[in-house]
Design a protein around this nucleic acid. Structure first.
Lengths: 226, 226
DNA sequence: GACACAGTTCGATCATCATCGAAACATCCC
DNA sequence: GGGATGTTTCGATGATGATCGAACTGTGTC
């Protein structure tokens, strides 16, 4: 990796097509094995291995051993949110050639972004929580109100346990192309996990798309009015 | 430029050291000529020209003719904010080797970020405006309150004129390394411009640093209490 | 133990792209 | 017009880095 301004090193890491494909696959939030990532990027396992090494050294990924597998995941939420920002910008500047495919439609409606809900449904969730007074801004930071805390508890989310984690509880994830924010942070991830637990949604097999069941759609609209 | 996922193309553009240096120089918000940018990146003018062409085609920059000069500037605020995000992430992941130089100190205190105020003073401004009830969040978007509008007017900022512009009035610019937001958008730029007009600050010659005069420091603290 | 599977390291190849010298083009000034 | 400055285009060179075949390490299974 050539020397230069720090931003160039990170961008160069993301700038290779193979690596970008891997990062894109990891944006769902799930950890994937080296082989899965190699398939995702359409390269051999050897090549993938060198890429994964670079990404890990660059602190964009972390690896976790599990038997003979090595699972790779995005290093932290900051990486995920920055990548989301870049993706939105790419969309905005018209780098994306393929417009409005049938599968893209599902992604635009609801998708996983580092294990929180993004897309239209993500914006919906966020705005509903704000409007109900469950989330609020104070001096520039997003926080969960007492009302919101109670609401989360009745919804089956153990907020106290979330707060022990080192990363932030509430955070905004900005999507340039939608020009809207939605909820990220450990709370954002907890909501999506809960939706899965209670059978409102399930994940599409090989995609970031989140599929709402008919019941999930109804219940979601009931619990999160706009 | 190799094909691949859209994000890779943008990142690859930023990922070259020479181009990254140019973008860094333009982050102040000022437009610079091709020759100035070549000097900034320490490359010949021919090389700079090809880089600038690529950046312009990639919609990261716009160029403006003025006589025999060609001024280049960041294409829009979205580009600027995304670059700021990447820079913060680079800082966070420890890509930056040079820690806490004497000049970095000034940058951390106050610097220009696409013509709005960033750094500690930027956070200060933002938090003060929030605390005084001049800025508020509603359903996930930042907006100027009626109080804030009146305040801006007495401060010498013509808000009505700003609102006619196509880009957003209020926007947040997130700095990962500081983990705080500050005010961007046309209003953010208007504030910095006004500070310059009334002699509170001036720009360091070849840097993004913003220098507060002694009087500027006092007045700033008076007008924007925390 | 032998075998299959997952992943990494090594070495060689090859394509891409940044770089610069030279030259062309454009604009301003006198 | 002629000369000076700013900028781009062209062509050639060179270095970086992505890629894959082959070989090697480590882990689980029978």
């Amino acid at each position: 990796m050539k020397e230069g301004p720090p931003i160039a090193q990170i961008a160069a890491l993301i700038g290779d097509p193979a690596r970008a494909n891997m990062l894109g696959a990891l944006m769902s939030g799930k950890a994937l094995t080296a082989t899965e990532l190699a398939n995702e990027a359409q390269i051999t396992r050897q090549t993938a291995s060198t890429h994964l090494k670079k990404l890990t050294e660059g602190q964009l990924l972390v690896q976790r051993h599990q038997g003979r597998h090595r699972y790779y995941a995005l290093a932290n939420e900051e990486v995920a949110l920055t990548l989301a920002g870049l993706m939105g910008l790419a969309d905005l500047t018209g780098q994306s050639r393929t417009r409005t495919g049938p599968k893209d439609e599902a992604l635009r409606t609801a998708r996983a972004c580092y294990n929180h809900l993004a897309g239209e449904k993500g914006v919906w969730l966020y705005e509903s929580l704000c409007k109900q007074g469950h989330l609020d801004h104070k001096d520039g930071t997003l926080y969960l109100t007492d009302n919101g805390r109670a609401f989360a508890l009745t919804f089956g989310i153990d907020v106290d346990k979330l707060e022990n984690k080192s990363s932030a509880l509430c955070r905004e994830c900005l999507d340039w192309s939608a020009r809207r924010s939605h909820l990220a942070g450990t709370l954002g991830r907890a909501f999506l996990t809960r939706f899965e637990e209670i059978g409102w949604v399930h994940r599409a097999p090989k995609s970031r798309a989140i599929i709402f069941t008919p019941r999930g759609n109804r219940e979601f609209a009931n619990h999160f009015p706009l």
